[in-house]
Design a protein around this nucleic acid. Sequence first.
DNA 1: CGATACGTAACAAACGTTGGGTACGTACAC
DNA 2: GTGTACGTACCCAACGTTTGTTACGTATCG
Lengths: 218, 218
Amino acid sequence: MTPARGDHDARRTEVSRAVWEVLAERGFGGLTLRAVAQQMGATTGLLTHYFPSKRALLQHALEVLDAHSLDRPRPAAGRVGEATGLVMLRAVLLDILPLDPRGAASNRIWVGSWDVALADPELAAEHAQRYRRARERLTVHVRAAQEAGELPEAPAAEEVAAAAQSFVLGLVVQALFAPEEFTVERQVALVDAYLAGLAGESRAASAILGGHRSGGAE
Amino acid sequence: MTPARGDHDARRTEVSRAVWEVLAERGFGGLTLRAVAQQMGATTGLLTHYFPSKRALLQHALEVLDAHSLDRPRPAAGRVGEATGLVMLRAVLLDILPLDPRGAASNRIWVGSWDVALADPELAAEHAQRYRRARERLTVHVRAAQEAGELPEAPAAEEVAAAAQSFVLGLVVQALFAPEEFTVERQVALVDAYLAGLAGESRAASAILGGHRSGGAE
DNA sequence: CGATACGTAACAAACGTTGGGTACGTACAC
DNA sequence: GTGTACGTACCCAACGTTTGTTACGTATCG
C-alpha cells in the first residue's frame, strides 16, 4: 500500500531545505508558503500535504537544521574527532562561526529565528534547551581542559562554557552585520585571544594556541 | 497655522513608544499598524499622518531607541560619568545587559530587529554602523584602561573592544532565552570574570574588580 | 477662513488554509 | 494476468482574513 515511507521523510527534508534557502535570503519576515513552494518549484499544495501548518513546517526545518549541527564539528581534515580539552573546545567554537557561506547562511537563520522564538513560548523553550545543551557540550570540553591543566580550575566549568558561548554568539552577530570587518582571520584571532585569556599563564595552553596562530576552521 | 511644532515631534516619539511596546511583546512578526494604533488607543489614520509608511515608522522607532542608549550609562547612583578606564568599561558593559525589565524589553527589540535588518540592506547598514560606533566607544575606555595599567597592552584596544562587545551581545541573547538561569548576579559575575581574564595578573585591575565582587549595575 | 489633526471607510494585495480534482502506483480478487 | 479498489502525491482554485495604503470626512484651533 503505502509506497516507501523513506521517500516521505526524504521529501520533508527537501522541503526543509527550501525553507532554509528562503529564510537565509529573505529572513523570517519573508517566509511564506508561496515563497517556499516557488523555491522548490512546487505549489503550496505540496507543502500542506507534508505539513499541517506553517508553524509545523518552520518547526521541523529548525529541528533538522539543529540536528545537522549536532554531529559537528566533523572529523574532516584534521582528526578533530579524537581531540580533547582545549583543542576540542577551540574546534567547537570555531565551528559555530560564519567562516564560510554555509556557516553564514545557517547563522543567518538562527539569528533571525530569535525574533520569532522570543514571541512564541514553545519555540522559545526549544531554543533555550538548544543553547543549554550546547553549553553542556562545551562544559565537557572545558572540564577536560581543566583536568589536563590547560585551563585554570578557578571559574567553574559551567561558567566558562556559558561565557565562551556568549562570546561566540555575539561574535556571530557582529560578523553577520560586518563581514568585511570581521574576516575569517580576525574571527579566528579573536577566539584564540579569548581562549588565551581563559588560559592565563598556562604553558600547556599557550603551546596549543600558539600552534594554531593562523589556522582556519577546517 | 501649525499648532506647536514641538507637539508634532512629541507625538512622533509617543508613537515610537507604542511601537516599542508592540515589538517587545509580539516581536517584529507581530508589528502591524493596527496593533500599534490599538496600543496607543488611536487608529491607523493617526499613524499615517505622522509617518509615510510602516518602514519609516519602524526606522524612526529604532533610531529613537538607539539615541536613548547613547547617553547611557547615566551618571545615576554612583557618579559613573566621571569614571574612566576599567571602571567605565565595566559600567558600559553592564548597562547593555538585560538586568531589569526595561533593559530586557529594549534588548528584546534589538535582538528581534536582527532578522528584519539582515533582510533589509539599508537597515543592515544602519545596524552595522550602530555596532561599529559602540565598539569605538568601548575602544576609548579600553585604551584608557591600558594606559592606566589596568589592562595589558598586548591585544590592541580595538580587538579587546570587539571581543568585549561580542561577549556582552551573546550574553544578552542567552539571558533573554533563559532569564531564570542567567540571573542578574550571574550576568554581573560573568562580566567580572571576563574582565578579570582580560586583565590577567594586573594588580590595579584586581583591586577594581575585587571591589565590585557582588555589585549590581546601578 | 484655512490648515492641521485626526477618525472612518474602503482598497487591492498577500497571506494561511481548505477542498476538489487528477495522476499514479500498489494490493488484492479472480 | 487482468481488473478493480484504494491510498498517496500533488496541482489548482478559491476561501476568508489580515495586511499596508489611500481617500475622504469632520473637528479643532490659530
